[in-house]
Simulated scan of single mutants.
Amino acid sequence: MSAQQAQAELIEEFSLFDNWMDRYQYIIDMGKQLPAFPEELKSAETKIHGCQSNVWIHHEREGETLHFLATSDAAIVSGLIAVLMRIYNDRAPAEIIATPPSFLEDLGLDKHLSPTRANGLHAMLKRIFTLAEQEKVTG
C-alpha cells in the first residue's frame, strides 16, 4: 500500500464516524497501539520543539525505507503520531516527500485541533519531511 493509499484508507475510516468526539476517541485509540519507545531514545536530538506536549521521533534507515519510532506523553498527540506513522512510516524518502499531508484538510484536523495541537502536528510533519530530505540526499 502506498502512502497515498494509506491516506485514502484513513479518510474512509474517519468517514464512518458521525461526530468529532468519536473521531477523537478513534485517534486516541490509535495512539494506544503505538510500539513502545525506548527511554534511551528520548534525547534532545529526537525531541520535537513546537509541541505543547513532549514528543520524540526517532528514525532509522532500513534499506530503501525510513522506519520511525515516535511517542508523546499526551493521549491525543500519541494518536496524531499514529496517524502520521500509518501514512509515512516504512516508506522511501522520495515517497514521503511526494506525499503532502492532504489528509489534514480531508479529515478536518486543520479545523478541529486546538492551535497548539495543530502547531505540534505541523512540527512533527516538518521533522518527518526534513528527515526524508536528508536521507534522500545521503541515501
Rank of each mutant, 00 (worst) to 15 (best):
Q4R: 15
A6C: 14
A6L: 06
E9V: 10
L10Y: 07
I11G: 05
E12P: 01
E12F: 09
E13Y: 07
E13Q: 14
L16F: 07
N19M: 00
D22K: 15
Y24M: 08
Y26N: 09
D29L: 12
M30T: 03
G31C: 12
K32L: 10
Q33P: 00
Q33I: 01
P35G: 06
F37N: 07
E40P: 02
L41D: 11
S43F: 02
A44C: 07
E45M: 05
T46W: 10
T46H: 10
T46E: 07
T46R: 10
G50K: 02
G50S: 02
Q52I: 07
Q52Y: 04
Q52A: 14
N54W: 02
V55Y: 13
I57S: 11
H58Y: 15
H58G: 06
H59S: 13
H59Q: 07
H59W: 09
R61Q: 15
E62P: 00
E64Q: 13
L66G: 07
H67R: 11
L69R: 09
L69C: 06
A70C: 01
S72T: 04
S72K: 06
D73M: 03
A74F: 11
S78V: 00
L80T: 07
L80E: 04
I81W: 06
V83D: 00
M85H: 06
M85R: 04
R86M: 08
I87R: 00
D90P: 00
D90L: 04
A92M: 13
A94F: 02
E95A: 08
E95S: 04
I97F: 03
A98V: 08
T99S: 00
P101T: 12
P101K: 11
S102N: 14
F103N: 01
E105F: 05
E105D: 08
D106Y: 04
L107P: 03
L107G: 01
G108C: 08
G108V: 03
L109R: 02
L109K: 04
L109V: 03
L113H: 02
S114D: 02
R117N: 02
A118Y: 15
G120F: 12
G120W: 13
H122V: 07
M124Y: 13
K126H: 13
K126L: 08
K126G: 03
T130R: 12
L131R: 09
L131N: 07
E133V: 07
E133L: 12
K136L: 14
V137A: 11
